[in-house]
Design a protein around this nucleic acid. Sequence first.
DNA 1: TTTTAATCAGACAATATTATCTGATTATAA
DNA 2: TTATAATCAGATAATATTGTCTGATTAAAA
Lengths: 156, 156
Amino acid sequence: MAIIFSKKCEYGIQGVLYLALKGIGTVTPVEEIAEHLQIPREFISKILQELTSKKIIGSKKGKNGGFFLAKSPAKIKLYDIVIAIDGDAIFGQCVLGFPNCSGDYPCPVHDNWSKLIKETYAMLNAQTLDQFKDKVSLKIQNLGAKKKNVKVRPAN
Amino acid sequence: MAIIFSKKCEYGIQGVLYLALKGIGTVTPVEEIAEHLQIPREFISKILQELTSKKIIGSKKGKNGGFFLAKSPAKIKLYDIVIAIDGDAIFGQCVLGFPNCSGDYPCPVHDNWSKLIKETYAMLNAQTLDQFKDKVSLKIQNLGAKKKNVKVRPAN
DNA sequence: TTTTAATCAGACAATATTATCTGATTATAA
DNA sequence: TTATAATCAGATAATATTGTCTGATTAAAA
Ligand code: SF4
Ligand code: SF4
């Protein structure tokens, strides 16, 4: 189970990150992306189409076609991708699921949580793709066949 | 869509919180809980059964039966409920969905995210039910009929 | 101009999550 | 002891998410 972003969103981020590694303007067929990231081809295809229609990436049809980064990695924020796919729901809901709570008399979770959400928001807004390229390239290079075996935790 | 906890988990927290308001040992039929929290009766019933089997609450069968808080609200942490229902997956996965990343060469998200997750973990561990009772009681009192109408955000 | 290789659109299928139904069991109270 | 009101167990149904298929369209290259 995905944690805070939907699987679509995770895949979307991975896909765009992959395009960023190839450099701006380099056209890459979805086949290659799917293969390398081990994501179902038709699924990542749909996702990239969605991101194309939202102008985050671009696409080229026909032979030698594919997807490409439409603008500089420095201008694409994680936030853009998340909003494009998952919307902004995570930023405005009660984490305990109370649908009609105003937060006027905040419960103990409220302040903590809204702080966390604000920090997440800030992080997504601050992180642009260019800041990832070097660090993530290793991970992406190594994906290939082993994707489904190992699972390691991000926390520390 | 629920944000970080599953709907089951949100409902579980709400249900146990409701029991906490009724006071330790007070037996409450699931009908009343479902009615008040506007949660499908059979669904919250299943969830409370699960929490019963995990010893977080207790149940009494037969006429005048129902569910009740098995121990002092001061001894029940949000963490217990979350783990019982959703497990600990959220604390050990890459938020970007890379399944084989070790975090040895952390990407820019990694440090930020693991910090957030640690804070969430700490919060869930620190917050016990007794700390909620007063603040949440108002909200729960007011639920009744209006549950499905208003939606207000927690983030400030 | 025809073949080829790609996106794209829309329907369809599988799976996971959420919700409901049926009936058995249990314990209280009349 | 019988009627009643509850949990509980397991099957089933509805919905949302994830994943697949088919074929149309597009553009490059043979
Ligand atoms: S005060 Fe508590 S219950 Fe209300 S919106 Fe904030 S987190 Fe949710
Ligand atoms: S370093 Fe980045 S990609 Fe790797 S586990 Fe951490 S957050 Fe995920």
